[in-house]
Design a protein around this nucleic acid. Sequence first.
DNA 1: TATCGATGATTAAACGATTAATCATGCGAT
DNA 2: ATCGCATGATTAATCGTTTAATCATCGATA
Lengths: 367, 367
Amino acid sequence: MARSGPKLTRIARTLGVSAATVSNALSGKGRVSAELAEKIRVTAAELGYVPSLAGRALRTGRTAVLGLVLPDIANPLFPQIAQAIELAASSAGYGVLIADSRGDVATQTKAIERLIDRDVDGMVIVPRRGTRIADVGCPVAVIDTPSTPGNTVAADHWGGGRQIAEHLKALGHRRVLVIGNNPASNVQNDRIGGIRSTFGDGAFVEILWIESLEREEGKGCPLGLAAKVAEGFTAFACVSDLHALRALTELQRAGINVPEKASVTGFDDLIWSPVVTPALTTARMDMTRIAAIAVEALVKAIGERDPADAGIGAPVTAENAEVPMQLVVRQSSAAPPATQFQPAQTIANAGAAASARNTAPEGEHQP
Amino acid sequence: MARSGPKLTRIARTLGVSAATVSNALSGKGRVSAELAEKIRVTAAELGYVPSLAGRALRTGRTAVLGLVLPDIANPLFPQIAQAIELAASSAGYGVLIADSRGDVATQTKAIERLIDRDVDGMVIVPRRGTRIADVGCPVAVIDTPSTPGNTVAADHWGGGRQIAEHLKALGHRRVLVIGNNPASNVQNDRIGGIRSTFGDGAFVEILWIESLEREEGKGCPLGLAAKVAEGFTAFACVSDLHALRALTELQRAGINVPEKASVTGFDDLIWSPVVTPALTTARMDMTRIAAIAVEALVKAIGERDPADAGIGAPVTAENAEVPMQLVVRQSSAAPPATQFQPAQTIANAGAAASARNTAPEGEHQP
DNA sequence: TATCGATGATTAAACGATTAATCATGCGAT
DNA sequence: ATCGCATGATTAATCGTTTAATCATCGATA
């Protein structure tokens, strides 16, 4: 839409100078005397001049637009991510174009193509389940997990798992059921890895994959957690608040009080986590920071890139690829009920009890 | 990013014709012989020609980009909405630029300005709590509620409330607590209106506003639903699945089984609704349809608009401003427990029992 | 046969910004 | 006095597309 606003030449005419000078003054590129430059800036401001992105794009080959690709847009994390990326991008002068792929790989490819056709300067991709990103022909920032090759920046999911585990361990849990959705997800695997490695040999950790369960029992089937409690599990560490919610309601429904009889933890601090009863203990990503790093890396790559080439679009890299997660302790986790097997056995391997003391009380930031 | 792809002139040269002819052939506007046009289309296709949006935008004043403004981006409905709008827009040849306002009105204005500065051809706005949209200078589609002035298209929230109420009424509920968040929200008021009006005088309906409760008791405070059950309420109709979730977990935690001792219903069919225990009975919007109508109206307005004028941007209007909601019955609603006051009294005003038979069993589409 | 009209294609001028190349000017140094 | 150079500003080309105006050609009509 052609705005009404004044054009470059209008400012030029107003001041009796050439359009080129105005452009130079505003961009600080050419040679313009300080006073004139100032005068130009002032009149540009009071005339409410806004450059035409289209004109600039045509000339420079830069659209100042980034694409945001979220293969799994139904993901409840979407709001957080979109918000963070939009903030980072807009404060760097970029717009954000969304691309949806409805979870489907073919659709995703199409969506990415549409972004390319729209001449985005770069894209931020949050891949689903470790999908490899084909070369797209423009700078790409990948937000997945630090352990994924080609990852630009991500939360330290492993560390998040560690924090959750240390918290549960410190509370005294020794039989833990980890609930994940899909073993193909790098994010989930890292979180689980962090949990398992922290518990080590002094505890019993089992994994339940929801997707394989549902393949047999149907979508939304019960997870059978009451039985697990009967087996002696005292804590359910879920790789997402969505699963934590599912676990929590199923346990409650079965008359198993959380956290008295069993603890439940999640990941991501999704919208409902603070308001359910009991509020969920979870680990939160610093999305703002992640987005800032991703966008910064992207912008840098765009700046260094020759606008003419349609060169290879290898994922860009950033300094700090690993952003710590933050443990948020709420009411869904507590000490296990007085139980069958106690210290003696476990105290052996538990220097962890001390280190676990570091575990954040409500809202501490990790270094 | 300047793509590598061929330009118009390249195709022209390849065929020994002028660029204008190619443009005409591809757009079907000028006068080009059928054969030549076909030949041009073919070579354009095999050369993989993609027009430069920047060039076109500069010349036509149309960017083929729509802005999506969601004042409350944290809204868990966001994924649904964004997905639907993106789909509708992209199949109409438009890109979608997101604008975030972090719930803040000032920020929202800035975000809208940024969209304007980027020359969006139009915008879709989902206002929060009946915020009036100031004139933004480009066509605008407003998705709020049918009862809001200036609304372009929306779900029939009132009708959704009616369906929920008919469902509960048919089950035998006569004391219902409606749980809302904020009385300033048109959407919530319509939903509540539909519920109240359907129950009529034969039942007792009370409203609980979460926000005012939290203002006194603090964020995330208990809603005191156990007490309400003690007072004889048998159903809790929430205006959002988020609140339904809160109610459900609070009731469960208090040892009140859902749906045996109390029913809980929500709105919007959010991501967790099918997987919590018991799964939530809710009313779903047909976002795909709503988005399609909004975008269609927008595109029409854009087409009729003189690209030169920066005219007033009154909200566009659509034929079918009211899209029916769909009742989704799951496990969180059932007949109230055998109770103190029974038929005799209620049977008098209940032609509703019959009409309620229409209430959809699991997943029926409304006409 | 001269003319009119319809048809098919070309020319050229935009759109609004950027930028390399050019020009003018004044000053210091030779 | 002149050359050279640094400085400050202008000229003009360019990005890729659209579109109004123009031109050429041919058939038909008067």
